[in-house]
Amino acid sequence: MHFDFSSAEPIYQQVADQIEEAIFAGAFVEGTQIPSTTEISREFKINPATVLKGMNILVEQQLIEKRRGLGMFVMSGAQNKIIAKRKASFYEDYVKSLIIESKKLGLSRSDLQGLIEKGYRHE
């Protein structure tokens, strides 16, 4: 994890985003325990209440759950929920701006499709 203390984005949101990314990437597998509030706060010198606020965002989204006396665990289906959320926002976050920029460049639909195909061939 890496936190940008000079960012306009609140630290608690960065905590939530980075844990979500780790779940998405498979670093925190469903059913496994994530680092405790204390561990994260100590390692990155962040107020424990700030870390907990970030974790509570993920609890509300039903991505992680608190197990009394044990800690926080990745919920079953969490990775699929993240994928579904990201697919739903993909158009707004990426495709829309891609189309706007391609129109500014004078690229046709077939030009853009060709570039996308080229990208798939090279990946």
Rank of each mutant, 00 (worst) to 15 (best):
M1I: 10
F3V: 07
F3L: 04
D4I: 01
D4W: 03
F5E: 00
S6Y: 05
S7L: 02
A8G: 01
E9M: 12
P10K: 14
I11M: 04
I11E: 01
Y12W: 08
Q14T: 01
Q14R: 03
A16Q: 00
A16V: 00
D17Y: 07
Q18N: 15
Q18M: 04
E21W: 04
E21L: 11
A22W: 05
I23H: 00
A25L: 11
G26I: 12
F28E: 05
F28I: 12
V29C: 08
E30S: 13
E30H: 11
I34Q: 03
I34G: 04
S36L: 06
T37A: 14
T37Q: 10
T37R: 08
T37Y: 02
E39A: 10
E39D: 15
I40C: 07
S41V: 08
S41R: 08
R42E: 13
R42L: 14
F44L: 11
F44M: 07
K45G: 06
I46S: 03
L52W: 08
K53N: 12
M55D: 02
N56L: 15
I57K: 10
V59C: 05
E60L: 10
E60P: 01
Q61A: 13
I64Q: 01
I64R: 00
I64D: 00
E65I: 07
E65N: 04
E65T: 07
K66T: 01
R68T: 09
G69A: 11
M72C: 00
V74R: 04
V74Q: 02
M75Q: 14
A78R: 03
Q79E: 15
Q79P: 00
I82A: 03
I82D: 04
I83C: 01
K85G: 04
R86A: 02
A88W: 03
A88N: 14
S89M: 10
F90R: 09
F90I: 05
E92N: 15
E92D: 14
D93N: 13
D93M: 09
Y94M: 08
V95R: 06
S97M: 12
L98Y: 14
I99Q: 06
I100H: 11
E101I: 13
E101N: 14
E101M: 07
S102A: 11
K103M: 10
K104R: 15
L105S: 11
L105V: 02
L105R: 11
G106S: 05
L107Y: 15
S108G: 10
R109Y: 11
D111N: 14
Q113D: 12
Q113L: 08
E117D: 12
K118T: 10
K118E: 08
G119W: 11
H122M: 11
H122V: 12
E123P: 00
